[in-house]
Each structure stands twice: as C-alpha cells, then as structure tokens.
Amino acid sequence: MKINSKITGLALCAILSMSLMGCSNKTNPTSKEDSSKKETTKKQETVAKKDIPQGLSEELGNGTIVLSTEGGTSKDRNVPVLFADKDLMMSQIGLDAETFDGSKLSYIYVDGMLNAKEQLGEMTQTTLTLEKDALKEGTHKVEVVQYENDDLKGKAITYKTASYEIKSK
C-alpha cells in the first residue's frame, strides 16, 4: 500500500507541476503591443535623425566626385559594387574629387550621416571608411557638401552625389 500511495502522490505532483507550467507560459498581449510601438518609434527616430540638411536634391556648384571599389567606379553614374561578408565590421572605398574649391571644407555624408570632413581641391584622392549601416546590403548614397563660410547652418554652395552597392559574398 505504501508504494501505491507514493506512486499516486508522485503522479499527482507531476500532473500539478505540468499544469502550472502551462499557465506560466501565457504572454501579456499589452507588452507585445508596447514593444512593437517602441520598435516603430526607434525606426522613425533613426530615419529622421540624419546629419545632412534637408532640401538638397539637385547637384550644385563646381566639382565632381567618383567612388571606386574593386567592382568599378561611379564614373558616368555607374554604381560600383563592393562584396562583403555579413560579419564585416569595416571597409574602405576610394573617393576621387576634382575641381572643388580647396578653400572650403567638404563634408562627406554616407546615407545622410556625416562620415568625414576633408579639404577637397583640384585633384584629391582619399578613402571613406565604411562601418555599421554603411556596410549593409543594398545601395548607399555618398553626398559631398560645401557650405558658405564652412558653417553647417549656412547655405550649401556645392552639392555632389554618387552611389555604391554592397552585396553579400
């Protein structure tokens, strides 16, 4: 009898434990909605938080830029390709600039985020270091802006663009 009552007791404990575990796996639907709203807000902040001033769409001023990767150049509006591993933390592409006003500081943006400040002149060769979002798969925009009196709040007097593409290996 003692063995049967022990087995029965253990079986009841096991059944009770399993039923309680099932109850503890319930999720709160409100928390899912809240986290979804937080993700949407973060995405909107990321999109809205760009360093480059709004309203620049047409190229203006003197100068040309050409991006170069192992896959070619952006000359004649081509989009050179850079093959990258998903794990790649940093890479570089070339930027050739011609006939820029060397007395002005040039602000270089990648996807709207400030990447570098350079003194571009008649014939300048430099490299852009790409990290994080600038290495995500897809097409990326490089913009070079020179401002009146080198003041970010001033009027843009030179604006040039080119693109490059990241593809997975």
Rank of each mutant, 00 (worst) to 15 (best):
F100G: 05
T158M: 08
T46E: 13
A84H: 03
K132A: 12
D111T: 01
L20H: 07
F83D: 12
L120Q: 05
L67S: 11
V66E: 15
L105N: 07
G71T: 01
D85A: 12
L20C: 06
A11D: 14
T158R: 04
C13L: 15
T129I: 11
A156T: 12
K75M: 14
S57Y: 11
A97I: 06
N28L: 04
A84W: 00
A48C: 02
A162D: 06
K49I: 03
G94D: 10
L10V: 11
L128E: 03
M21Y: 09
M1W: 11
M123R: 13
S36K: 15
S68H: 08
D76S: 15
A84Y: 00
Q119S: 08
D85T: 10
A11E: 13
I65Q: 10
T127W: 06
L60I: 12
G154F: 00
V81A: 05
S31Q: 14
V81K: 11
E98M: 12
H140F: 03
E70T: 09
K37S: 15
T73S: 14
T126M: 13
S91R: 04
K50T: 13
L60N: 10
D111I: 01
S31F: 07
K6M: 15
M113L: 13
E165F: 00
T124K: 08
K155N: 08
Y164W: 09
L88P: 04
E118A: 11
E165G: 00
E131V: 15
S74Y: 05
E58N: 14
Q44A: 12
D151T: 04
K153V: 05
K38V: 12
A162T: 07
S17F: 15
